[in-house]
Amino acid sequence: MKSKWALAPYLFLAPALLVFGFAVLLPVAMTVGYSFTEWNGYGEMIFVGFENYITAIGDTVFRDSFVHVLIYIVVTLVLEVAVGLVLAGLVSGVKRGSLWFRVAIFTPVMLPMVVVAVLWAFVYNADFGLLNAALEAFGLAELQRVWLGDTSTALLAISVVSGWVYAGFYMTIFYAAFSQIPTDVVEAARLDGAGEARIFRSVKVPMIRSAVIVAVLLCVTGGFQSFDLFYVMTNGGPYGATEIPTTYLVRTVFSFGNVGYGSAMAVLLTGVIVAIGLVFVRLNGRNGKRDRA
């Protein structure tokens, strides 16, 4: 009887494995294969070996795109994770009406990113945008900018939009983590004379360390996968100031018709993301062993 049912688990897993193989593994394998060729998507496919990878490594636009996305990630770690953590601390301390605050802050997450990008493009508009109008109304006209057309402000402007959207997402994660903290620990801190700010900094945040680590990892890997916000708002401009790897490789494939070179950039980007994830997991594992010791 045991041998009769030995294959049962694999039969149940087979549909999911087939879908995963067809939707994930096959495209990955095809992308790796295309990266060794020179191909425009419909003509003759010419094998070029590692030429696309060598070209990508020497491509200054591609290298600069990683610098831009790293700056974006650093800014969003503050505007999304840190702000979300503070918002969760504030909301968790509200006794009445916290549900409405959470819904209001989380609402931008539910909006399609393309819609968000179009709305904020109007906010940043240099002629009739809300931001420049507000600066003029408050007597700060000298601070007015062509926000999405200025190389010094475009990347920061996009980062602010990302923070506005995802701060509520991370607030929800941290709020759920705060809800799991035993109330007697917080009450003991209050009896010892600790204020709410000290309790938040020294008690609550250390006790949700695992949630903070997950949030940081999500923010870092999600930053490398960003595309729609950059594509709709600036499409890499002005003068490449907001060019990130995803926008550059999509333009390379669909605008320039260079499937092989775009595939090589996609493979390199995937390798960077996987390497960061592995390093992060390794460092987190060492820190966990140190804490247990």
Rank of each mutant, 00 (worst) to 15 (best):
Arg145Asp: 04
Leu87His: 00
Asp64Met: 12
Ile57Asp: 03
Ala137Tyr: 03
Gly43Gln: 01
Gly97His: 04
Leu140Gly: 06
Val94His: 01
Pro108Phe: 05
Ser152Trp: 02
Ile158Arg: 03
Ile54Asn: 09
Ser162Phe: 03
Asn125Arg: 01
Thr151Ser: 15
Ala82Asn: 06
Ser98Gly: 08
Val75Ala: 15
Asn52Leu: 02
Val69Glu: 01
Val103Met: 12
Val69Lys: 06
Ile57Leu: 15
Val146Pro: 11
Thr55Val: 12
Asn52Arg: 04
Glu136Cys: 00
Thr60Pro: 15
Ser152Lys: 14
Tyr166Ile: 02
Ala154Arg: 08
Ala141Asp: 14
Tyr124Ile: 07
Leu119Gln: 11
Val78Arg: 04
Val118Pro: 10
Arg96Asp: 10
Val114Thr: 15
Tyr124Cys: 10
Ala126Arg: 13
Thr31Gly: 11
Gly149Asp: 05
Tyr42Met: 14
Val86Pro: 10
Met113Tyr: 01
Thr31Leu: 07
Gly58Ile: 06
Arg102Val: 02
Glu80Ser: 10
Pro112Asp: 04
Pro108Asp: 05
Phe47Val: 12
Met113Gln: 14
Gly84His: 05
Asp150Met: 07
Leu87Lys: 01
Phe106Thr: 08
Arg63Glu: 06
Asp150Glu: 05
Ala117Leu: 02
Phe106Gln: 10
Pro112Gln: 09
Leu70Pro: 06
Phe50Ile: 15
Thr37Cys: 12
Thr60Leu: 14
Val146Trp: 11
Leu143Gln: 13
Tyr166Glu: 10
Phe66Ser: 01
Ala133Gln: 11
Thr55Pro: 07
Pro108Glu: 05
Trp39Ala: 04
Phe106Met: 07
Met110Gln: 07
Asn125Val: 08
Leu119Val: 15
Leu155Gln: 01
Phe138Tyr: 09
Thr153His: 00
Tyr166Asn: 10
Gly149Lys: 00
Arg96Tyr: 10
Trp100Phe: 14
Trp147Gly: 07
Phe101Tyr: 13
Ile54Ser: 14
Asp150Cys: 03
Tyr53Glu: 02
Val48Asn: 02
Leu77Ser: 05
Asn40Tyr: 00
Ser98Asp: 09
Val165Ala: 08
Val115Tyr: 08
Val48Ile: 15
His68Val: 04
Gly93Glu: 14
Trp147Asn: 05
Val91Lys: 01
Ser35Thr: 09
Leu87Tyr: 06
Val115Ala: 15
Lys95Trp: 00
Val123Ala: 12
Phe36Leu: 13
Ala56His: 00
Ile57Tyr: 12
Leu77Gln: 09
Arg96Gly: 08
Ser162Glu: 10
Gly43Trp: 00
Ala104Ser: 11
Val165Trp: 02
Ala167Pro: 09
Ile105Thr: 10
Val94Gln: 06
Val118Asn: 09
Trp100Lys: 03
Ala167Trp: 01
Val74Gly: 05
Gly168Met: 02
Gly168Trp: 00
Ile57Thr: 11
Ala133Asn: 11
Phe128Ser: 14
Phe62Asp: 08
Trp120Asn: 01
Trp100Met: 13
Tyr34Leu: 13
Glu38Trp: 00
Val61Pro: 08
Asp127Glu: 14
Ala167Gln: 12
Trp120Lys: 01
Asp127Leu: 08
Gly49Gln: 09
Ile71Lys: 14
Ala56Lys: 03
Ile46Ser: 14
Tyr124Thr: 08
Ile105Arg: 03
Thr60Asp: 13
Gly41Asn: 06
Phe36Trp: 08
Gly97Ser: 06
Pro108Gln: 04
Val78Gln: 03
Gly97Leu: 06
Val69Pro: 07
Val109Ile: 13
Gly93Arg: 14
Thr37Arg: 02
